[in-house]
Design a protein around this nucleic acid. Structure first.
Ligand SMILES: [Zn+2]
Ligand SMILES: [Zn+2]
Ligand SMILES: [Zn+2]
Ligand SMILES: [Zn+2]
Lengths: 163, 163
DNA sequence: CAAAATTTGAAACATTATAACATTAGCAGG
DNA sequence: CCTGCTAATGTTATAATGTTTCAAATTTTG
């Protein structure tokens, strides 16, 4: 039986979220950044969803809190969280997801299941090196890498097996 | 003196565009697909720009033609062109660019200069293999890969040298 | 030619993101 | 405590990107 990475295994969401929030607080303290209630709440919502959330979905959930928030509120919080490496934007989905490697220097790559929507953040230095060296081989100086792989996660491969 | 790939070298745009259109016609004939005037014009506009164009930029240029086009016109043409491997959408830019390897089986990867906006489509099988194998190593079955590398092209590195 | 399928036109609408400016909260120095 | 400064949030409006829907025209097929 193969050992799947965390997002693909059943696990305690609440602990997962608490851990992410605790990490975020530590990181912000260290960086002298203010993890204000709104920012923290947005991060919490993102982690709770445990899959990419669009800005307007976030907005709606803030609304359920009683928060009377407008789009800029959410986008500003997301900017902050991205700036401090706490969330990533998935360009191919126009959505945001909690960073699984906050605090570490890394470039996020993502495995996105088209069926169940879960996303695994891949941290694969060899792959990043291969990408960078391919770029440099063209005399190109890479700065931002967007690598998003859509397909089927292990669970959904099995499920779709019986079609 | 390094030999740079075509998009980074001065070259004859018009020939470049004509060639792309001729190729497109051949490909569509072979696939029994109809490269209608609108579709061909959209492809031509994309190639003429020689950098990624947004859907609404295309719309505006069609307008200059006298075409009284609405958004669906452009999006439909773009869908067709993508379907037949004649253009790619760049997710990180919400823009479209002509495929430099039309007709060949390939997955596009892109080097996007943040300064001059030119895009080089990279066809690097080793890189694609590395990406796929990294995915499969997580038991993930990849289908669509979005790889977009933003940075500085050779020309703009030199230009920015003198800052 | 007539029926069927594909393509285009047109209007409305939906979603995602930003601009601009007013207001409030947190904080440092007097 | 008050003052003035900066960062953060509220508010309104608007821009940019993309889709749905249905009707009309065109092309293909029999
Ligand atoms: Zn990350
Ligand atoms: Zn899945
Ligand atoms: Zn291509
Ligand atoms: Zn450049």
């Amino acid at each position: 039986m193969p050992e799947h990475p965390l997002p693909y295994r059943p696990h305690n969401h609440d602990a997962c979220v608490s851990q992410a929030l605790a990490d975020a607080q530590a990181i912000c303290r260290k960086q002298n950044a203010r993890l204000t209630p709104i920012r923290e709440r947005v991060l919490e919502l993102i982690w709770q969803a445990h899959k990419p959330l669009g800005a307007y979905e976030l907005l709606a959930r803030l609304g359920e809190d009683g928060q009377n928030a407008a789009p800029p509120t959410v986008y500003r919080a997301l900017d902050f969280l991205q700036q401090h490496g706490l969330v990533h934007r998935i360009a191919s989905l126009n959505a945001f997801i909690g960073c699984a490697h906050a605090g570490e220097y890394h470039r996020g790559s993502f495995l996105i299941c088209r069926d169940c929507g879960t996303v695994l953040e891949l941290a694969c230095p060899e792959l990043n090196n291969a990408i960078e060296s391919a770029a440099r081989h063209q005399s190109f100086q890479p700065e931002e890498v967007t690598l998003e792989i859509a397909g089927l996660c292990p669970g959904c491969q099995q499920a779709n097996h019986h079609d």
